[in-house]
Amino acid sequence: MKWDIGGAPALFLAALVAAAVFGAAVWLWPRLAGRGVRPVLGRAGIQLAITLTAGSALLLAVNSSYGFYGSWHDLLSLRREDPVPAGADASGPGAGAVLVRGTRSWRHAGSEDPAVIGRIEAVTVRGARSGLSGQGYVYLPPQYVHASAGRRAEFPVVLALSGFPSTPGVLIDRLRYPQLALDAVRAGRMRPAVLVLMTPTVAPPRDTQCVDVPGGPQAQTFFARDLRAAVSSHYGLALDARGWGVMGNSVGGYCALKLALRTPDAYRAAAALSAPYAAVRDADTGDLFGGDAGRGQREDLLWRLRNLPQPPVSLLVASSRRGEHQYPATLEFIDAVRAPARAFSIILASGGHNYETWAREVPSALEWLVGRLSPH
């Protein structure tokens, strides 16, 4: 039975406790109706218990729907970096750039054998240029596991980004990237690809939206330069942008489109699910542009498409006619793309800004993205 924060048993237990507390309050309230310190403290305690238990059940229900955190470990570790254990692998030309913290056990299609279903490594990527680091997972398909060092450079690479707030674990537990990739390869719909699964939050708790912040975190540099160099060196993969794609949901989708449009020498194709098309400013982001309105304007993807030359990249956007507030902007984005850029779309009849909708879009978007990558 799964008692993780995103699991149904945890939600059911929280709802059961909330109902029990409410029932106890109804039963005990007449006894606490008098005056005096003890009745007042009793009523206050009951109200506090109702608030806490009902609030916990509500927060678990919201998390179950939107998948912000996949486990209690994800929730507790979001704002800290796990220590790298002694003996962690940091070898190769990019020594220290990719640190393998261990492997994640997983099971799919009746097997747990990495030689059959591939291997998922938990990694910390440390950026030489940006000075930032990010945690995530790298999925190595079974074909990569069996390949010689020389053949590994032939594998395309996909960087998959979650939204904010979130953790890399939801890309495995909720959106099932490795599982879908393995199924697509076995069905002959997709070539084997290495997947790098991360969150765009590389300066927690700040939501940098993959922006190089003046005097602050250089998030774009981390994803466009540092991550690619580190992963390519450590895993023997090609660095050519033609072999690299990026995709994501929500803020991760905005990052994907922006990385392709702003750094086409890093990513030649991008797919975005329910993406906003401009960076926002709120309590989580702070001032991303150092008060420079022009810099903020250039981070607006619709403005870029309409006012700047478009690079030779392929862009896929996904939305829903009903239930998705970004749908009108998605149509504007598609209409604004001009050669040599190319636009593609996945438009559902109905959906929403949630993991249930994104789970319907990921299989087609992933297959589309890998189909546009050619490392050589």
Rank of each mutant, 00 (worst) to 15 (best):
S345F: 05
P311I: 12
H73F: 10
L315S: 09
A270Q: 08
P93F: 14
A270M: 13
T201M: 15
L197W: 12
R322I: 15
P156C: 09
A122K: 14
V158Y: 01
A193H: 09
L227F: 14
E367L: 07
V317P: 02
S374E: 12
L59I: 09
L58K: 07
A97M: 15
R338M: 02
T357Y: 14
R206T: 02
R38H: 09
A10I: 04
A153T: 14
P9I: 06
F222G: 00
E81L: 09
A122D: 06
V231F: 01
S232A: 15
R104K: 14
T357C: 12
L175V: 04
L52E: 04
D173C: 01
G150H: 12
T208L: 07
Y254C: 02
G252K: 03
A57P: 09
A341Y: 10
S233P: 06
L99D: 08
L301P: 05
L227H: 07
L305E: 06
A86R: 11
G36D: 00
L171P: 02
M1V: 12
L60M: 05
D240Y: 14
G351Y: 13
G134D: 06
R35V: 05
G36A: 07
F222L: 01
V40R: 10
G216M: 00
N249L: 13
A97W: 15
